[in-house]
Design a protein around this nucleic acid. Sequence first.
DNA 1: ACTCTCTATGAAACCGCTTTCAGACAGTCT
DNA 2: AGACTGTCTGAAAGCGGTTTCATAGAGAGT
Lengths: 333, 333
Amino acid sequence: MATIKDVSQLAQVSQATVSRVLNGGVPVSPAKQAAVLAAIDRLGYRPNAFARSLATNRSGAIGALVSELSSAVYGDIIRGIESVAEEHGMHLVVSSGHASAETERRSYDFLEQRRTDALILQVDASTDEDLSAWVASSELPVVVVGRFIEAIAERCVYLDNGAGGELATRHLLERGHRRIAHISGLMRIPDARDRLEGYRRALAAHGIPFDESLVANGGFVEDGGERAMRSLLARNTDFSAVFVANDQSAAGALKALRDAGKRVPEDVSLVGFDDTIVAHYLYPALTTVRQPFDEMGQAAAWLALAAIGVAEQKEVTRRFEPVLIERDSVAAR
Amino acid sequence: MATIKDVSQLAQVSQATVSRVLNGGVPVSPAKQAAVLAAIDRLGYRPNAFARSLATNRSGAIGALVSELSSAVYGDIIRGIESVAEEHGMHLVVSSGHASAETERRSYDFLEQRRTDALILQVDASTDEDLSAWVASSELPVVVVGRFIEAIAERCVYLDNGAGGELATRHLLERGHRRIAHISGLMRIPDARDRLEGYRRALAAHGIPFDESLVANGGFVEDGGERAMRSLLARNTDFSAVFVANDQSAAGALKALRDAGKRVPEDVSLVGFDDTIVAHYLYPALTTVRQPFDEMGQAAAWLALAAIGVAEQKEVTRRFEPVLIERDSVAAR
DNA sequence: ACTCTCTATGAAACCGCTTTCAGACAGTCT
DNA sequence: AGACTGTCTGAAAGCGGTTTCATAGAGAGT
């Protein structure tokens, strides 16, 4: 593999000049410039990324730590990050946290050691305090996506989950539903709490008292959603609609309803959350609250790149608004 | 950030000794060893990955070029790769080809320049010849996943798509179906051709002549599947079952059937391919042919790591066998 | 006691690039 | 003509590790 030295010798200039031609910014006479380019071409020279990084202390890569690589849910976040990174000639180094706080920590260390230029975190298991501490102690810019943490608010890209919960519930209320159940998410995750909170707010706004017996925990997973729905059905409190904290558990809920001989949406209306691919494929197609994962990933990447001066500084949306996607799982009452 | 020099001074040893302690393999006296470790701990020293890479010419990362980051289909491949990489203390640098031969080429150059230690390719747009050429000219080990290329057979990890097509079709034959249609995939992709071939073989084995009017192209996408099914229905050739080349177009086909008032599986049986989450969420849940994406990713990663001496050399499955996953979309006839 | 391993160690070269610094040269201004 | 500016260039010093090579010192063998 040719080195800069080979190029400089062939072009009869110094290594410094080759470097200048390569990196621009410094004037180089046209003659030498041409000689250098010719030599580069002739030798098929490609700069050694390690040497460059060592000298500049820049890696040309941003790191992403995601809770789960390419789940239905978070895949789009990575996609969003990658698209912006690529646009700026940066690479993406990914690592998965495997939904364990310890692994997340390890992966974080890993990436930090690897000296990516910036870090994007999308993690579930670690606490707000952990994350704040990481951000505080890190030498490189860190941005957190899919989560709002007070202490590092300006480094967070997130959805307004409360508004999402409200939106879903209000939609059902507007369709005439009064007995609306909720299958909640994993309560240690703020998103789940916020969505529940939004649900309560929407009810309150319509003068409907919160009824604990209409809430069951689905833990954000399909099985959990199925169990939660069975539990709701078994309680003999009637309801005509359910707001489910995410699409996956909505899929489970749908299954439980079907097994119980209930039709959706004729007997029970259903609203999910996330608008993942799941919502699209369910039958009936699931009305749900959309999170713009792709855009959130892009925003996070932009924020990170701007922080290291690679992307232009501009106003980046950090708090995203949920949008209701109407499909076929809600009927008027 | 502390450097090896700081450590060596604090520990009163040479840099070489610190390096030895760090990398092992060379005997170091217990006393110095302890002193070095203490100094490392005290300074919070972390070796600079760039410097190390420059000196060793190893990056500690493998590159993955995927056609589409985290689609429902290929997400599991990446996951498989990452898990094996992480197990061996390696990083994963990913890049997406965005389904264009040119972008794939660019991304490939990008990764190669980045000098990852090995490369895993999962690409659709580039031709067999392109890939063979890349592999031949590359200085680092390349493995191709999800595709069989004669010229570089021992570097390919792939599914036996022909057997998969046969499996799906035979399943329908065994359930008593005789008029079996096929919605094919993107014909420029070998997988699609092989699956069709398998379909023909299975028919032939049962003495059923191939009937061109029972084949429509779905292009591996949902829309395409829907259109293809509509086209089949419009032809007025009757059929009681359809083997669809992938789950996504099966979802489209299912929709078209539903729109036409046909029940699945009572009127028409359906078999998909891939066993992505789509198959799981469709209603009725789709009987399909499973590709072990995760394992294939793992195998590819293992092959790559073994090639650079990071993973132990062992017999790695390169040709995976499809498995039929029976769900609810096939009825006996 | 003396040579002969053998082990543990440090000095220094090296990996391939960027960047500083000083100087050569050409052009401009009195 | 002489003093200044400003532009372009090369030598060399890093960046922070690894690795080679030579050597000091400890034991072993006679």
